[in-house]
Design a protein around this nucleic acid. Structure first.
Lengths: 216, 216
DNA sequence: GTAATGTTTTACCAACCGGTCAAATTATCA
DNA sequence: TGATAATTTGACCGGTTGGTAAAACATTAC
């Protein structure tokens, strides 16, 4: 018998494992470049190299596909922020946070664009995650930053806007890649641009957060 | 006779003027939140409060609407960068550039999202503008920044990445507004957040670009 | 091997999409 | 006023979209 996909609570087949992987990979490609509404199941099916009904056998709707993708990616996307360590040296913590975020922008640009599309379009599918888990994590790390400020280890500043600034500057290289390449021109568009960006951003944030004489 | 819209080279009617305005306003709403592919003519027509064929009487295709919108907005979008003045004081020039960009993010978030959507999705309609006029303008301003560095007025840094950083941090408040609001929570999501952002970003960039002792 | 289960395909549907057409309505101006 | 041009609308069209039904095919368990 053909059970509806959702009713199967038994352990998954090898084929299921493989195909779902294949589909999510293709869906990431398509959703990341066209957003949810701009993407079609046919497109995803073509990229995945399978027929549309076959794809719908694994994920019963386009929404289900998108949700599965978001769930899988959101968690790992926040890893760099989780590593932010209250016990560490503030400057080197911030420095390595920037570096990690920049590495993710370089190595996982599709994941970055998936979120960018989603948020840009009003986050209709992940609003709860934003106000829940994400806010919690950011609140926690903002508190860490605030403690560093109180301890006189970095300059006084709004920790939330600091985090926003790190997010935006790093993700910019994934989300606005075409623009960055367009402006830099062919000569400077190679992978070296990430090293240049890292150098610039580390300098900006490190000296931007340095304690100035007479301000304590 | 009913002339095709494009053939009318005569001066435009009062009604034409008004309706085209009305349509572009509605189109901005829709394109900004759903991207080009995710938007439908019916949607725009509904927002504009007119029938689809009527809308298509003024703009013959969806593409034409989008293009008209891009053309109108792109130019004014670059105004803040154009005001960047080589003769001015570097620190205050950068400071007011940040402020202007932030004001645009606050007052014209739809325009910002229109571009963000377009670029995020590979800039299929404005690639030429990116590699042409935009690159030219940025090249010119990068040269200005470089001259300030050479003159020892600000710290040594890559001018292009500096511009990217200002773009990304400021536009973040328009493009990722839902996220910003979600993380800040209801209490801090009011208009005051733009003042907080301005204060933070000015501090970051100003002290981030200060000349340090012993580095000249 | 065969029966049960899991997978894939073909054919299809209703809703929606961008866009056209011709007729109806309204504004302009001599 | 009436003729002319500009504007608006409802009906429609071919293609695409998300999704379904059922049967063919493959795999696994016994």
């Amino acid at each position: 018998m053909v059970l509806p996909r959702a009713a199967r609570t038994q352990r998954r087949t090898r084929i299921q494992e493989e195909k779902e992987e294949l589909i999510l990979e293709a869906a990431l490609d398509v959703f990341a470049t066209h957003g949810f509404r701009g993407s079609t199941i046919d497109q995803i099916a073509e990229v995945a190299g399978m027929s549309k009904p076959n794809l719908l056998y694994y994920f019963r709707t386009k929404e289900a596909m998108h949700r599965a993708l978001i769930d899988r990616v959101l968690d790992s996307w926040l890893d760099p922020l989780r590593e932010f360590d209250a016990e560490g040296n503030p400057v080197s913590e911030i420095r390595s946070y920037i570096r990690r975020k920049l590495e993710m922008a370089r190595d996982f640009p599709r994941e970055s664009r998936l979120f960018a599309n989603e948020i840009l379009q009003g986050a209709p599918h992940i609003e709860d995650e934003l106000k829940g888990p994400l806010k919690l994590l950011v609140d926690e790390k903002a508190e860490v930053i605030r403690s560093w400020i109180k301890a006189g280890k970095i300059a006084k500043c709004d920790p939330y806007h600091l985090i926003f600034a790190i997010w935006s500057t790093t993700q910019h290289y994934a989300d606005f890649d075409v623009q960055v390449r367009g402006v830099l021109g062919d000569e400077r568009s190679g992978e070296g641009r990430f090293e240049d960006a890292a150098r610039f951003l580390e300098q900006l944030f490190v000296s931007g957060l340095e304690i100035k004489e007479g301000s304590a």
